[in-house]
């Protein structure tokens, strides 16, 4: 298992100090501390091949960040086996750190008062990137991210999106082969999100880099990831193809029709659960197993002007995954 990410029965427990509210609780906790063990990550296993882009999804507090931190060597696992690019992350070897990178949408490594290029130079020294390679990589990143006009401005004068572009460049100067992206598009406008996505895709293709991505924007996931891992309460709920996820979790499709004449709601209901009616637009859930039969029936029996069948929105599917698990 030279490259890629290999995780087996990985767990992380935290000891949390608990105390009752108010003065009494504060006083008691001075003398007898109460600890509770919280399982943030519970025996998860998965394997990511080199060059794969995998979406890592879950609600807040599901264990995403804890897992990412263990993968990048920032947290010591409680138990389990972990190999990233052939290294044990928590040993924090310099050779390991030179092969990975962590980009966090909300945290910046850029030096605030001076142009981003200065941060690049510091990283060049820290990562010991030879001059020729540095020039080449910077050139490529400037091309891919259209950085040219940004490099001479102090970082504090850049917009959020421009800063994110520089952030990505600074994190990739050493050409890491494994990239952890923690909500890289958070707070960006739609165009900038698109730019970042295109860049991640391009970088992945050019360097065959392995990418693990968390995001709350489903557009990021659908645009980049063929495969997703869904985690909640520290456990993996789903690991597989995005397409399979939709089929497994959402056993229905959504038929959208435009009617040419009004139809009674009671009558529409006989075709499937109604999601939305606003004459002439209607959307109805059709069972996945019988989409064609139900569609044919609708087309034959209703005054339909326009008709489409779609998968339910990704947000709804993920929502179903979380709901299904807690039920």
């Amino acid at each position: 298992m030279q490259n890629g990410i290999h995780v087996e029965h990985l767990s992380k427990h935290f000891k949390v100090h608990e105390r009752e509210a108010g003065m009494g609780g504060a006083w008691r906790s001075l003398f007898r501390r109460q600890f509770r063990t919280v399982t943030a990550v519970d025996e998860i296993s998965f394997h990511i091949e080199p060059g794969e882009i995998v979406g890592f999804l879950g609600p807040n507090g599901a264990g995403k960040t804890t897992t990412m931190k263990m993968l990048s060597g920032l947290l010591h696992p409680t138990s389990g086996e972990l190999l990233v690019g052939g290294y044990k992350p928590f040993q924090q070897k310099a050779a390991f750190k030179k092969r990975i990178t962590l980009v966090m949408g909300q945290k910046s490594q850029l030096i605030w008062d001076i142009p981003a290029m200065e941060t690049f130079l510091v990283n060049q020294a820290i990562y010991e990137i030879p001059d020729a390679q540095f020039k080449e990589t910077v050139g490529e990143l400037i091309d891919l991210l259209e950085l040219e006009p940004l490099l001479k401005k102090p970082v504090r004068n850049l917009s959020l999106g421009e800063r994110m572009k520089c952030e990505l460049a600074a994190s990739l100067l050493h050409r890491p082969e494994i990239i952890f992206l923690d909500e890289p598009t958070i707070g960006l406008d739609v165009n900038m999100q698109e730019t970042v996505r295109r860049f991640i895709k391009a970088y992945n293709e050019r360097f065959n880099a392995t990418v693990l991505l968390t995001s709350h924007y489903m557009a990021d996931v659908t645009a980049l990831c063929k495969r997703v891992i869904i985690i909640n309460h520290g456990k993996i709920l789903f690991d597989g193809d995005l397409a399979a996820l939709v089929q497994n979790l959402a056993p229905y499709k959504v038929a959208k029709l435009t009617l040419s004449a009004p139809v009674e709601r009671e009558h529409l209901q006989t075709y499937g659960e109604i999601l939305h009616v606003e004459y002439p637009e209607v959307s109805v859930k059709l069972p996945r197993a019988d989409v064609s039969g139900a569609s044919a029936k609708i087309l034959a029996e209703l005054p339909v002007q326009d008709f489409t069948v779609e998968d339910p929105p990704m947000e709804d599917v993920i929502g179903l995954a979380f709901a299904g698990e807690s039920a």
Partner: peptide, 18 residues
């Protein structure tokens, strides 16, 4: 507090030195 300590720990440089 800001979490940027993680970014420093990720670098192949002695964190105390940096």
């Amino acid at each position: 507090r800001k979490g940027t300590f993680d970014l420093i720990l990720m670098k192949p440089v002695d964190s105390q030195f940096y």
